[in-house]
Write a protein that binds this DNA or RNA. Structure first.
Length: 467
RNA sequence: GUCCCUAUCGUCUAGAGGCCUAGGACAAUACCCUUUCACGGUAUGAACCGGGGUUCGAAUCCCCGUGGGGACGCCA
């Protein structure tokens, strides 16, 4: 049997980082087993679903490189099918009309809560079966459009072997006859999921923890429909850096935020893979490797706290080993977005080579590259502390030597050394003022390398501006 | 309130009864490298939630407690 997994987000916002991990695991499981990965957009909540959100999800998936093999399917386009199944269930008696109003339900819940019971629909419109004791149903109120409820078993238990949590068993008494179609005829979530998973031949449902409670209902529905029950694997949730539930207010939750913050998609993927899943002591690995290793057995069943510091470290690792041309291209885009002309200064590829093993993210890389492309303005304070008379004098001497020497690192370093001897200074006494002069900041990579990359004309011009 | 899930260093985790005086990674601390800042290298500190069982032996199995999370919608 071919493995078929799916990712089924509802388009009510951006692609959430927790959703991204769910997608990653479902994708990896399909890839690992030579199966198919299906993308399904659950847009039955017309009030909250937007085309922008659909696009955001598609963009997020693409940025991460999680390609689907089938879809995207849209539930709104499957309405005829849902209606067909509902009609069948009504005819078969596995579903029935219920005329209880939302207000009545609300009152029912309040009473039950007051009695410290689990709030549930009491089954007042549930018709009795031939083999059950006869029950008189109220007369349907005139002019009220009924909802359709699923006829859930009254007793017995529903159990499944969750691929990540192990066996879970729930008594049917805990469940009620949930609504599968609203008064306006549109089907609801638990119903659509079941029909879709069935129609799409989903073999493994890998989804968030928050669906554990829906699983027994869905299994009952599947059984009533005579459909096969897939394997379920429930992933625990991701907590924010602060140990609290992820919130838009306090955390970066949209995957596009991570792109904006300068993370490489492979770093995010690698980080997410290790959040709740492990392969011994392995920390840094490619997606190819991940796909070969991935299994459901090594997923942790407890919630994981997001740790930005570790993501930062991973991102730095990936930046170190990324192709220079790719990084330069990204930095150019980031600079352009800031209004800095990336063509204005030294070769970005050379600049990237200078900085790629020193930065944590692409924004830092762009920060580092920016002074190479613009006229720098060191602060007054920086000038007064570093550009002393002695320093300026030394820079003048250095300027003379730089104007004449060959333009490569060794010759530049030699010119520096000669200047130190001539002026009786130590390296930092010249190198730091020089950094301030050239880049507007007292720290930089090896100064001879910086000079080489900046270019002779630019170096001389920048020294002249302050000496 | 009811039901469900969950519990190893600050964080992510390894650990499937003896290999555990509990391993790795991030972070922290110290030192080294050094032309500044980083990178890098080396080292150090740091954990089995509590209580009962089961067993010759438990981080690993069971029960209870406690903490944390989730669900209880004509949302998904």
């Amino acid at each position: 049997m071919t493995v078929r997994t799916r990712f089924a987000p509802s388009p009510t916002g951006y692609l959430h980082i927790g959703g991204a991990r769910t997608a990653l695991f479902a994708w990896a499981y399909a890839r690992r087993h030579g199966g198919r990965f299906i993308l399904r957009i659950e847009d039955t909540d017309v009030a909250r679903s937007t085309p922008e959100a659909v696009q955001a999800i598609l963009d997020g998936m693409q940025w991460l490189g999680l390609e689907h093999d089938e879809g995207p399917f849209y539930q709104m386009q499957r309405m005829p099918r849902y209606k067909e199944v509902i009609a069948q269930m009504l005819a078969a008696g596995t579903a029935y009309h219920c005329y209880t109003s939302p207000e009545e339900l609300e009152a029912m819940r309040e009473q039950q809560m007051a009695r410290k019971e689990k709030p549930r629909y009491d089954g007042r419109w549930r018709p009795s079966l031939a083999n059950e004791a006869g029950k008189a149903l109220p007369a349907p109120p005139a002019g009220v459009a009924p909802v359709v409820r699923f006829r859930n078993p009254l007793d017995g238990t529903v159990a499944w072997d969750d691929a990540v949590k192990g066996r879970i068993e729930i008594g049917n008494v805990e469940l009620d006859d949930f609504i599968i179609a609203r008064a306006d005829g549109t089907p609801t979530y638990n119903f659509c999921v079941v029909v879709d998973d069935w129609d799409m031949g989903i073999t493994h449902v890998i989804r968030g923890d928050d669906h554990v409670n829906n699983t027994p209902r869905q299994i009952n529905l599947l059984k009533a429909l005579g459909a096969p029950v897939p394997v379920y694997g429930h992933l625990s949730m991701i907590l924010g850096d602060d140990g609290q539930k992820l919130s838009k207010r306090r955390n970066s939750v949209a995957v596009t935020d991570y792109e904006a913050r300068g993370y490489l998609p492979e770093a995010v993927l690698n980080y997410l893979a290790r959040l709740g899943w492990s392969h011994g002591d392995d920390e840094v690995f490619s997606m190819e490797q991940f796909v070969q290793w991935f299994d459901l057995e090594h997923i942790t069943s407890s919630a994981a706290q997001f740790n930005t510091e570790k993501l930062d470290w991973l991102n730095a690792q990936y930046i170190k080993s990324a192709a220079v041309a790719r990084l330069a291209g990204d930095v150019a885009r980031r600079l352009a977005k800031r209004g800095v002309d990336p063509e204005a200064g030294a070769s970005l590829e050379h600049v990237v080579t200078l900085y790629q093993d020193r930065v944590t993210n692409l924004n830092e890389l762009a920060d580092a590259a920016e002074p190479f492309c613009i006229v720098v303005h060191p602060s007054e304070e920086m000038i007064s502390t570093h550009l002393t008379d002695a320093a300026r004098a030394a820079l003048k001497v250095l300027r003379g030597k730089l104007a004449a020497c060959a333009w490569e690192k060794a010759a530049i370093a030699a010119a520096m050394k000669e200047t130190l001897t001539t002026c009786g200074l130590k390296m930092p006494q010249v190198a730091i003022p020089l950094r301030v002069t050239l880049l507007g900041q007292p720290q930089s990579p090896a100064i001879d390398a910086v000079l080489e990359v900046l270019g002779r004309n630019e170096v001389l011009a920048r020294i002249d501006r302050y000496c």
